[in-house]
Design a protein around this nucleic acid. Structure first.
Lengths: 342, 342
DNA sequence: CCAACCGATGTAAGCGCTTTCAGGGGCTTG
DNA sequence: CAAGCCCCTGAAAGCGCTTACATCGGTTGG
């Protein structure tokens, strides 16, 4: 259909509009961007022409001269293949996308699974396809953040980076405090042999949640907990739980650093014949939807995801518009959600 | 930091590379795009220069002349606000993003919640920011698909459109057949008073699932089921279930057109003192992760999401590259997943 | 041995837009 | 009433890239 050679053939351009309105292209541009005063009559004529022709400005052409693209990249390091989806990550993705509505910016979704993807991604960003980057789920050995920072790309992080990153804002949840709440609850409930399924030690969320949990035990005179390590996934939670049970069969309470790991842990506990919470109490972290539907329902630490996404986009957009990075990172409060499991 | 005025200052351009390699810009372009034969020695020199300077081609400039952007939009009509996320939609989003890896294309995520968003979106697409559109969750009264089609934008649909759309491929799941499986199972299990929580009647998924369900009852001599209508969300499932119970208290089986609605229905049934599946059997549709963790676990109809996403991207990319729409839509098989609820 | 030719490179013309810069009224002011 | 301003508009120069088209050796065939 349509003509042939030029795919864009037929679409009116600035010049077309200018001709139709009997003015210069410059004036049309000024009307569109409201970048300089234009006489009411002329403005009207231009707007009519635009309307009549169904003109839409070409973004590539605009980007070329303004050096902006009005879109940002959301980069998620999704650890697993097809089908499996970290509910926390997908929630925050949706929330970010929604909080961008109204800013006139758009979201480019990028799932980086490995180093190759990251290299391609850095390329993509530097090719000027986005004005800034929102990075989720950053590991300590990840070279990407530093790379982007060096290239001067505006960037914000969802979660505190392990090593301080100058010139880059982030929004974190009070992982330490949240984990303390979990520990307190278990201690208060009179549990005596505690264990924890910790997250990866190359992520602040993993480290902080473990530290918070241990700090309470230390302060209350408890012996150190048995620790198993996972990667926030359900499968890793199962595995860690098995290790925990081997090393400490008399365990009567477990704190998991993510809900998915808590769910895996619960499955293993049940499988081993233990009742939850009667024999073993379980507390998770994240407050994903799933936790409301498990049997028993999951006691967990809530993260304000929508708020986190909102702050992230706000920080990033500000940084893009003003050129200066948010000086102060945000740390949002975590809250305990009491359900059946612990 | 960096200089000031031009944000892009410092980034090498084609010309920079050409100068460094001692060749013309055209030759550099030919090397980069492999669009014409270039002597090995020269190619080498150019590649060295690119490497040394860390050159990255500017996409806006390229887009301007090629009229391609190498990115596509994933448009989701997300019915609800912050926080609530349809698990089916978020899964397919992730799957689509992943199946795009390796094609050199990128995904722009767009959550359109209302007509305004849609208008803005059509604008965005026509502004040439994407080469094609993948549309999820299309309602019959939605003007967007036709609008894009008329504008000649390559497009594919996740799910059959209610009204035939010429020149636009789609990938559907065998909703009719899947619903029949559910009905069969309930009938075979000896259930006698059947009801269904149907989906919206302005979407093929809603209509087809209801039709499939009824067809089996008709053929097996059952009376027509009581029907409640929802919008695929959990809350709407609860509400519909309440209506069903009012109209038919002796109900002993329910088929819900989505897992989220099934979960809502189960909550209402439990609340009313009924045991599942003893008093009432429940079967859902979608096979979302949540269904594995409910109590009882949810019997449901499985959709091959990853496969659907893969086919959608494949169709769209092909259409973009060749210019012709996929002539035959794909319909993927649904399968029954037997769990505890029904 | 010269004409025709072919393959590799360079030249230059835009793609559609923004943005300086200069200029041309209409006003105010001395 | 002339000089000076200010406000609005138009002309034109690119932004960084691709791509005809021209060019220029070097072959090949008659």
């Amino acid at each position: 259909m349509a003509s042939s050679s030029r795919p864009n053939a037929g679409q009116p351009t600035l010049a077309t509009v200018a001709a139709a309105a009997g003015v210069s292209p410059a004036t049309v541009s000024r009307v569109i961007n409201d970048s300089a005063p234009v006489t009411a009559a002329i403005r009207q004529a231009v707007e009519n022409a635009i309307e009549r022709l169904g003109y839409v400005p070409n973004r590539a052409a605009r980007s070329l001269v303004t050096q902006r693209t009005d879109s940002i990249a959301l980069v998620v390091r999704e650890p697993v293949g097809f089908g499996i989806v970290d509910p926390y990550l997908s929630s925050i993705t949706v929330a970010a996308s929604q909080s961008l509505v109204g800013t006139g910016m758009h979201l480019v979704l990028m799932m980086a699974q490995n180093g190759d993807d990251h290299a391609q991604l850095a390329h993509y960003v530097r090719a000027g396809h986005v004005d800034g980057v929102m990075l989720l789920s950053v590991h300590d050995d990840d070279p990407l953040p530093r790379q982007l920072l060096r290239a001067g790309i505006p960037m914000v992080l969802g979660g505190r980076p392990m090593t301080t990153l100058e010139g880059c804002g982030y929004v974190d949840v009070d992982n330490h405090g949240g984990a303390q709440m979990a520990a307190h609850r278990l201690v208060t409930a009179g549990r005596s042999v505690l264990g924890t399924v910790a997250g990866p030690m190359d992520m602040a969320a993993g480290v902080d949640r473990l530290a918070g949990f241990r700090s309470v035990l230390r302060e209350t005179g408890y012996p150190p907990p048995v620790i198993g390590y996972g990667s926030f996934t359900r499968a890793s939670g199962e595995e860690a739980m098995r290790t925990l049970l081997e090393r400490e069969p008399h365990l009567d309470a477990v704190f998991a650093a993510s809900d998915m790991m808590a769910i895996g842990a619960m499955a293993v506990l049940k499988e081993s014949g233990r009742r939850i919470p009667d024999d073993v109490a379980v507390i998770g972290f994240d407050d994903i939807e799933l936790g409301r539907h498990t049997d028993p329902t999951l006691t967990t630490i809530h993260q304000p995801i929508a708020e986190q996404a909102r702050l992230l986009t706000e920080m990033l957009v500000t940084q893009i518009r003003t050129g200066v990075a948010a000086p102060i990172p945000a740390v949002l409060p975590a809250t305990l959600v009491e359900r059946q499991s612990g």
